[in-house]
């Protein structure tokens, strides 16, 4: 099952506030089954209900294992594009394929299965306030039907990885913005997604935490996760050199490619 990524023998080494992810965690099956485009948009348009089109004629593809910034001014349509990628919204025209599947033809139950392979760090985290940090992180595993005993171990380990083992029983409302974000990241990666999407992950936290978060995402990328970070934070864009997808007024104006991910480089 996709959810079980941490074996209890694995452990993390602390550095820079986060534990360094022990890369064995992700080695159980190759993350990138087939090298190629993991996400592909073809002439995609999008509108909210009957409103005006907020994205027009968007075409691009993401190589498996790549790391992209999605940039553009506020209101350009970054979050809307992310919504399309995490299968929250249907395009009004064009076609989207994820993991090689055209999402318009995928049956409803399989859409749920595809979503489990996509981890999302929402802009406002969207943690469940009535659940503890631990139960929030456990949610994707529970949804996938994993056994309680395994869930406890995995979640505890992942919370240690993001440096929150002390706060595992805390409710999100009692956590700081940075801590909430780490819970959100732990929840996004616990079911070992092949795609990780983060929408303005630096928006609600200060600069230092944003940098740490980027290291964390890069670490996940190194082991094969395809990462897209939506941001309009210039400092971050300057500091980290990843190809950019830039949109303005709902139109794609730049798509920097990079070389496809090399799976051999990811194993240690």
């Amino acid at each position: 099952m996709a959810g079980l990524l941490l074996s209890s023998s694995d452990s993390g080494r602390r550095a820079n506030g986060y534990a360094i992810l022990h890369l064995n965690l992700f080695r159980k099956e190759p993350l990138v089954a087939a090298i190629g485009d993991i996400v592909r948009f073809e002439s995609v348009g999008m509108r909210y209900r009957l409103g005006v089109e907020v994205l027009h004629d968007i075409s691009f593809s993401l190589a498996a294992g790549s790391f992209h910034f999605l940039t553009g001014p506020s209101g350009a349509g970054k979050s809307s594009l992310m919504r399309l990628m995490y299968l929250a919204h249907r395009p009004s025209c064009g076609s989207i394929s994820v993991f090689g599947r055209d999402v318009s033809t995928v049956p409803r139950v399989e859409l749920a299965a595809l979503r489990r392979r996509i981890g999302v760090v929402f802009q406002d985290f969207r943690l469940l306030d009535h659940l503890t940090a631990l139960d929030n992180v456990a949610l994707p595993l529970r949804i996938a039907g994993a056994k309680e005993g395994q869930i406890r171990d995995h979640v505890a380990e992942l919370l240690r990885w993001v440096g929150l083992e002390e706060q595992s029983d805390a409710k999100p409302t009692t956590l700081s913005g940075g801590e909430q974000q780490r819970v959100a990241i732990a929840r996004a990666v616990i079911s070992r997604p092949q795609i990780l999407l983060a929408d303005e992950p630096t928006g609600n936290v200060d600069g230092e935490i944003a940098i740490r978060l980027m290291y964390l995402l890069e670490e996940l990328n190194k082991i094969g996760t395809t990462v897209v970070v939506a941001t309009h934070n210039e400092a971050l864009l300057e500091r980290f050199s990843h190809p950019r997808i830039r949109i303005e007024n709902g139109a794609l104006i730049e798509h920097g490619h990079e070389t496809a991910f090399d799976p051999d480089a990811a194993t240690i």
């Binding site: 299968l87 489990r116 949610l139 994707p140």
Partner: peptide
Amino acid sequence: SDIVEVLHLIGAKDSY
């Protein structure tokens, strides 16, 4: 609706 949407987006089936 907020929690329901989160559950939906992290891969919960309708039946769940």
